[in-house]
Write a protein that binds this DNA or RNA. Structure first.
Lengths: 344, 344
DNA sequence: GTGAAAGCGCTAACAC
DNA sequence: GTGTTAGCGCTTTCAC
């Protein structure tokens, strides 16, 4: 019943040729006559011959597969990056194996092993947020399997086949604040999450530096450490509006809290952006749905995936005998100015 | 330089044992002495031995890998389903290879071939919307590779190793309309996209039948064929509000248009849900962010992915000698009543 | 232009 | 308990 697949040996027997000739014909090798190629191709077609990639990969020592390890495939960011990875990988002729660490260091380790056992040719990783030690990547480095970290990277992990792609959060924040200043805002508040997370730390620093660069004073009471949810944003905004001198703008470290801020401003009968301009971060899908539409920062998720694959490809092509690994790439985020911050 | 990986043969030589013993020891086979197992394991550890899955898979004729083919990994729905698939597959010990058809029938075909060549043990597919013919699935059926369609299924494609998972759109719509009627609404409008798409057709039918079942008249002027975007929803709602007898509720076939409707109602100085109750479909992330929060229908995306994998597993375990394939599974959607439709 | 032969790394049937 | 042997399906030298 289970119609065994036709193999090269089968084709060979049927045509009275040797397996090697069949193999060569199928891969369009120069030194097979056109006539033979034609016969082979036709029979392959008829029998629905499907080359066994496993066998080919084993023989060649190349699996043609890339491994991807992400914390999860939910929310806004990772699906988009994965989409970018899958698309670029397909373009370059790679298959993609995807694993999730579920933000768990142990699963991350197991998945790294799994990917290596599956003989992937390269690995793309975004770290689980519980990962503290990096022994499991040591093995990857030792085997000289090209490794690209994206977004959540190990800063001090280098090697001849290791690279990284990140987004410049600092720069994104800096752009936001500069933009707000250009719109005439002078008391710019900042919503941030815990600063031990890089994304918040860098955005926070960009905020401070942009203020300083434009000669604006830093008012600590405008910096709100809040839960970065809609509710958190609403609460933080309510507090700010009670200040004797209330802010005329908010830069929120994510979009959710920014939306909360807009809602709080509106329910205080103030106007966005006239009384308070608001800018978020990440360019989530729903930024287009609010009234007014929320200005935000595009993190170029797909580009990140694409770039990560390209880095991998570069390492694969040049082999380990090279002047160091490709430099880490830092993507420039794009400020998207929408209604919530456009005052003139 | 490229530290070749240790192989079973290497372990065998080092320990003065035969490869088969090593293999058995590593897979914890009963008839290897504990002493030997211990020695083998220790050496394996030391040398960072990683079994070559490719070779094992080739030999066993089982790759331990499932293939997933989706139109794309963007938006709300597919990432969630893929997440469900990946999670369940990992739980059952499968790797997952993911491809995107980009809504293109030709790429779909190529990817199916690719997955088969990669010797996946089963395939999960959601059809590209351009797919008209199904020859490429014929090959899968012939090879007896278990195949599960999810969400976008081929209705009349059956086989001993083919099954499907869908969501009951009709039922979801029916629930929505029943709920609105229970809230006291009597003139319930419906926003729908083109009816040649199954999702819209079924939701539309659910709408009609629910009205009829509760003895409410069907008013064709309340059925709006509109673009299912925020803007489309706004425009459709504006038109409806101009009617002599305006509707007191809207059931939109998706969330985006529902949000548009809410905005139109609000800017007409009417209130949601008091004057017009609104319910969407799909339970997108942003339904929680609107004011009032949007009632919607949860499509149970993750559950769909999980169920699809379980169906595959069932076919794999029982083999082809069975009384027909597992029955297609139709998931019951869940109505989530939020503020936008709660009138009492 | 084609064939013979070896072997990728692993497993499993069969010996002892 | 352990070893011997063969082979999964393919590619690739080396021969002719």
């Amino acid at each position: 019943m289970a119609n065994r697949r036709a193999s090269i040996t089968d084709l060979a027997k049927t045509l009275g040729l040797s397996p090697s000739t069949i193999s060569r014909a199928l891969s369009d090798h120069d030194d097979v006559s056109e006539a033979t190629k034609a016969r082979v191709r036709q029979l392959a077609e008829e029998l629905h011959y499907q080359p066994n990639q496993l066998a080919a990969a084993l023989r060649r020592g190349r699996s043609n597969t890339l491994g991807v390890l992400v914390p999860h495939i939910t929310g806004h960011f990772f699906p988009q990056v994965v989409h970018g990875i899958a698309t670029e990988a397909a373009k370059l002729g790679f298959n993609v194996m995807i694993c999730q660490s579920n933000e768990d260091a142990r699963q991350e380790q197991k998945n790294i092993d799994l990917l290596m056992n599956s003989q992937v040719e390269g690995i793309l990783v975004s770290l689980a947020n519980t990962t503290q030690s990096f022994g499991h990547f040591e093995a990857v480095r030792q085997q000289n399997i090209p490794l690209v970290f994206f977004d959540r990277v190990v800063e001090d992990f280098s090697g001849s086949n290791v690279s990284a792609v990140m987004i410049d959060d600092y720069q994104g924040a800096y752009q936001v604040v500069t933009h707000l200043i250009e719109q005439g805002c002078t008391r710019i508040a900042h919503f941030t999450g815990p600063l031990h997370l890089n994304i918040h730390k860098n955005r926070h620093q960009g905020y401070r530096d942009a203020l300083a660069a434009h000669g604006l004073p830093l008012d600590e009471e405008l910096i709100m450490f809040c839960e970065m949810s809609q509710k958190g944003g609403t609460q933080a905004m309510r507090q700010l509006l009670k200040l004797p001198r209330r802010p005329d703008a908010v830069f929120s470290s994510n979009d959710l809290a920014a939306i909360g801020a807009i809602q709080a401003v509106k329910s205080a009968r103030l106007r966005v952006p006239k009384d308070v301009a608001v800018v978020g971060f990440s360019n989530e899908m729903f930024t287009m749905l609010t009234e007014p539409m929320l200005s935000s920062v595009d993190q170029r998720c797909e580009q990140m995936g694409k770039t990560a694959v390209q880095l991998l490809q570069k390492m694969l092509k040049s082999g380990p005998n090279r002047q160091g690994p490709p430099k880490p790439i830092v993507l420039k985020p794009r400020l998207l100015v929408r209604e919530s911050s456009q005052r003139r």
